[in-house]
Simulated scan of single mutants.
Amino acid sequence: MSLPSYCGRFAPSPTGPLHFGSLLAAFGSWLLARHAGGQWLVRIEDLDPPREVAGAAEEQLHTLIGFGLASDGKILRQSERGAVYQAALDRLLAEGTAFACHCSRSDLASNGGIHQRCVATTHRHGRSKQGPAIRLRVPAGTRLCFDDAVQGRITQDVSTEVGDFVLKRADGYWAYQLAVVVDDAAQGITDVVRGADLLDSTPRQILLQRALGLPTPRYTHLPLVIDKAGRKLSKSLAALPIDAGDPLPALRAAWQALGQPPAALAHVDTVADALAAAQDAFAPQRIPNAPIALHNMRVTDAV
């Protein structure tokens, strides 16, 4: 399967409004796509109904439009793609690459939650209301390396650090790892640009790509935005929603967080002018790889 020259994406989960960390990922991925002369798509990763907030997906899309970040193609929603995920899972099951597992979290607690072999004895009484989880088999000694455009060379011993990982949950919901791999291939994504909190998921996704015969995109993991306590912004009280009605302060702050020269956007008056100036001045090599402390930035009006 061949890849187009460049196609990036932004894929939020509808668990609440977009915050500054979300904007950084969206703006960074958009800038890299425009810098490469490629496409930029938006995907709604609505796989986990218990965590979703009603109306959040539409609010997120409205916010992106307010910041001038419109998808270049049809917006894909993962909640509508169960049959596609099932076909991929059926293939892995038929090949013996995936297997059914009745292990609970308590069963795996003694091994730090890492599954390397099934330890559940049977369908235990009280667990019958749910089906088994489906996991990808990760053979002992599975070690994966890849080069990230910002974070550099990444190596993970998937067998010892992750183990056999879930593709479909016991409650019937699709796991992120399977859906993201299937959808990146379906949308022709050549470059995955996202926050560094997803860095350790990448080896699992590459293993799945190989198991399904799908192409592996290039990866760029942008620096995380953290609060004073060093927590990821989405888990912090500082994760206030960004204001689509007054986008320029937040755009300037995200531009600065991406290591770009503040002067380039200092004198623009509209979102369109800001995005045009950003495209002209953007230099990917300036993107930092270390976390960005929100309290060290002058973003009071941006979040």
Rank of each mutant, 00 (worst) to 15 (best):
P17H: 12
A140N: 12
A26Q: 02
A274F: 03
S110Q: 12
Y85K: 06
G113A: 08
I287N: 06
D280R: 15
G16M: 05
A170D: 12
S106E: 14
F67Y: 08
T122G: 12
L41V: 06
G16W: 02
L18Y: 02
S159Y: 01
L207R: 01
L251T: 13
Y176T: 00
A98F: 04
P17L: 13
R204K: 13
Q260C: 12
S5D: 14
F165R: 07
H295D: 15
A263R: 13
Q151W: 10
R231H: 14
V119N: 06
A302W: 04
P241M: 05
S13C: 07
A211V: 03
P284D: 08
H125D: 13
D197I: 06
P50E: 10
A57C: 02
Q256C: 14
P247N: 09
I242S: 04
H125K: 15
A278L: 03
S236K: 09
T270N: 11
P139D: 02
G73R: 06
S71K: 13
N296M: 13
A283C: 11
R194W: 00
C7E: 12
V158A: 04
V182E: 04
L69M: 08
A57N: 03
T220W: 06
A238K: 13
I154Q: 15
K228I: 13
R204P: 01
G245N: 11
G96I: 01
D183T: 03
L275R: 03
A196F: 09
K129V: 14
P49I: 12
L222F: 00
L3S: 11
S201C: 03
S104C: 08
R117C: 10
A302Y: 09
S29H: 04
R9V: 01
V166A: 05
V150P: 04
V225H: 00
A25W: 00
A266N: 05
R91V: 13
A254H: 03
V162Y: 02
I114T: 12
P284F: 05
A196P: 09
L207I: 04
T15I: 11
R117T: 13
S159A: 14
A264G: 12
L32Q: 11
V271T: 15
T300R: 13
P261Y: 08
R298Q: 15
A277P: 05
G96P: 00
A94T: 08
E58Y: 06
P247C: 06
V193M: 07
A266R: 11
E45L: 11
G21C: 04
T155R: 14
A57L: 03
F27W: 01
G141R: 01
R51G: 06
R135S: 07
T202S: 06
C101Y: 06
V162K: 02
P261K: 12
G37R: 09
P203C: 02
G55L: 13
Q86A: 08
D107R: 09
D191L: 07
